[in-house]
Design a binder for these strands. Sequence first.
DNA 1: ATAAACTTTCAGTAATTTCTGAAACTTCTG
DNA 2: CAGAAGTTTCAGAAATTACTGAAAGTTTAT
Lengths: 185, 185
Amino acid sequence: MKMTPLITSAVMHFGEMGSRWGFNRTVGQILALIVLNEEPISAQEVADALNISRGNTSMGLKELQSWRLVKQHHVPGERKEFFIPAGDIWTLANRVFEERRKREIDPTMSLLRDLLLDAPANEKEANAQHKLNEIHDLLESITAWSEELQNLGPEKLNTLMKLGSGVGRMLELKDKLLPGKNSVN
Amino acid sequence: MKMTPLITSAVMHFGEMGSRWGFNRTVGQILALIVLNEEPISAQEVADALNISRGNTSMGLKELQSWRLVKQHHVPGERKEFFIPAGDIWTLANRVFEERRKREIDPTMSLLRDLLLDAPANEKEANAQHKLNEIHDLLESITAWSEELQNLGPEKLNTLMKLGSGVGRMLELKDKLLPGKNSVN
DNA sequence: ATAAACTTTCAGTAATTTCTGAAACTTCTG
DNA sequence: CAGAAGTTTCAGAAATTACTGAAAGTTTAT
């Protein structure tokens, strides 16, 4: 598992970015290595290539599997397990979005729902609750929408994205197009 | 600056989530406090309410200003500076997205562009470059699209989100609607 | 210009997160 | 079923990140 200079640069960079993307350096590096390598890689090869301990490698691979970014791949006749990306780039990006939503939005939604159940004790609290409610609604819209977009599937999603400023124009024509449905406020 | 139990819960939670949202605990708490408090708050009040050092408070406020989530507010007749949210909830959410995009996507795009300039040294590198190119294109689409969406402004964006599954149907009619333009692959 | 009111900086310390490596565990193989 | 091949766990060490508080810096009022 020799890393070419190009791959090394990319792997290092993904390591640096790792923490911003929700995992740590090592996990970022492992992910990059697995994605950029056409052949399946064993845990030992990962440890060697990145020069990290076998234990750390194991934990990193476990985390990547929990994010559903990497999966095991059994090679017939081989004793050890190999690892490969869990899908194409689009799929991986989707998984990262989804997983982050779970970690970054869902817990907050849940807390907000709870806090909004109690009657406000006074003026100050009433005001705060109003704000919290706004936040809750916003997060809810985002969640619902991101699910919607995922259901569109890669091709349509891509079409939508490439539509660019056309989106604005389409919205203006929306009511003619979809009469009666989805009339908003 | 008494914190009611409700506000305390919310502030603590935003503190915990802080690190997942790209800043640290204290910064998350300060943000929640400022957003949930109708009146402007001074740095000293923030420090007292959250029971953190004055120095840390200063740094946290500075970071929130760099994210453009909080702004100074001068109260006539008062010597010290007060702080208020930099806009409504929608604006703040937008700012968080934008700022995170800058920190999480832009640096990677830039590196990928560089790595794609060099000719591949061999088969292996050619393959890796192909993957990197896919990633680059994906990030580019996301970036372009998020700018597009921001330009729509809150109302239209909201309409679009609430459209739900209507989006799929609209895409099917797209070509009739916007003839000639934006034909996608 | 001096002093009072307030803010920022930053070196050192504390808290948190990540990593190592040895021990425990789990297959497989003959 | 012994032992070889491979994996996981986890306590402690290392690295990173966040926080404090005292000193330096600003601004405003007199």
